[in-house]
């Protein structure tokens, strides 16, 4: 175990934590909280899709399970928000393990894995939309009851720090994994599954561990979304939008890198807001910009924003890519 890589994380966290002292605009704080929630979902995706190379198109399955389990526990059973969140995250992790167990054991990878995760998320969406205890198509509305124990805050800053706390946990977990033996095994599976197996890596168990942690992180994002907006329905919680958000941010920021998701989420949503300002109130224009950014990144900057920065820094000397660096 090394202590490498924690300094940049600390810097990013410090800047965001001090933000509420510099800015009081609710619009800006709202924006930051929303982007932090997306960051959490993206950190989950990055662990499985970025570090492990198993691109999922259905992280909505974990986001939605987190949100729904937490909402049902609080609305129907009156359980404390913090306990509900903990149970919901465990439920999200369990769903991740089950989906992983079924699809990895069947040997699905690449496009097939992407499609099967998409299908699982769709099944959950249709079920949540039709079942009674999930509120059906009307969704679930939480009671507004501000207080620490209900995880509801009047000040946007308080919620920002809460979300940032979870993002910090996500960053530290990602960095610990990147520095660990498990992280190296995961990268080995991404680069060449057969070779990893030949070297004695238990591929199935490495992938299962990755998808479980990944699902848990994304489930936290679902829980936070619920606590912040106090309303979910099937198209929000299990919708394709969150699967795409979770995938886009790491791709744009830097796939497989610890800081990739947070950099990517802020870049994307910053660009989205900018295009909204430029184009006025045209619906869909920010999303069209995301799509264009995705195409441009894949075409011209496969390493994402962080990859570009690194290229600029090391322009004179060739970049040596070690497993730990790319993780």
């Amino acid at each position: 175990m090394t202590r490498r890589g924690y300094l940049p994380i600390l810097l990013v966290l410090a800047v965001l934590a001090l933000l509420p002292f510099a800015v009081t605009s609710n619009v800006v704080l709202n924006f930051v909280v929303f982007v932090l929630i997306i960051t959490l979902a993206a950190q989950g995706w990055n662990l499985l899709g970025g570090v492990g190379g198993q691109s999922s198109f259905g992280h909505a399955a974990f986001f939605g399970t987190g949100a729904y389990v937490s909402a049902i526990l609080q609305v129907r059973f009156g359980i404390n928000a913090w306990v509900a969140t903990a149970v919901a995250v465990a439920a999200g992790a369990a769903v991740g393990w089950i989906i992983g167990f079924l699809s990895f054991r069947a040997g699905l990878r690449g496009s097939y894995f992407a499609l099967v995760t998409l299908a699982f998320a769709e099944v959950l969406r249709i079920l949540a939309n039709a079942a009674g205890f999930t509120g059906g198509a009307a969704g679930l509305l939480m009671k507004l009851d501000v207080g620490f124990w209900n995880m509801q805050f009047t000040s946007r800053a308080a919620f920002l720090w809460l979300a940032l706390g979870f993002v910090a946990v996500g960053l530290i977990v990602s960095q610990m994994i990147a520095n660990s033996r498990f992280g190296a095994q995961l990268v080995a599976v991404r680069e060449n599954e057969e070779a990893a197996r030949a070297l004695g890596v238990d591929v199935l168990s490495v992938k299962l561990k990755a998808i479980t942690v990944s699902a848990a992180l994304t489930a936290v994002a679902g829980c936070l979304y619920l606590q912040y907006f106090l309303y979910i329905d099937a198209n929000i919680a299990y919708g394709l939008w969150i699967s795409v958000e979770a995938l886009l941010a790491p791709m744009v920021g830097g796939r497989g890198l610890v800081l990739g998701p947070i950099i990517g989420a802020f870049t994307l949503h910053g660009l989205g807001e900018a295009s909204k300002l430029l184009a006025g109130r045209v619906p869909g224009i920010d999303l069209a910009a995301y799509g264009a950014v995705l195409i441009l990144v894949v075409a011209f900057a496969p390493g994402g924003v962080l990859g570009l920065l690194r290229k600029l820094r090391f322009r004179s000397q060739p970049v040596a890519k070690t497993a730990e660096e790319t993780a």
């Binding site: 791709m251 045209v282 869909g284 224009i285 069209a288 799509g291 264009a292 894949v298």
Partner: peptide, 22 residues
């Protein structure tokens, strides 16, 4: 690269859908 094509077509679909929406 096959993985890239998947992402490019995803990006295309987002652009087209939202351009139509606009």
């Amino acid at each position: 690269d096959d993985g890239n094509i998947l992402l490019i077509t995803l990006g295309l679909s987002i652009v087209i859908e939202n351009a139509l929406l606009a």
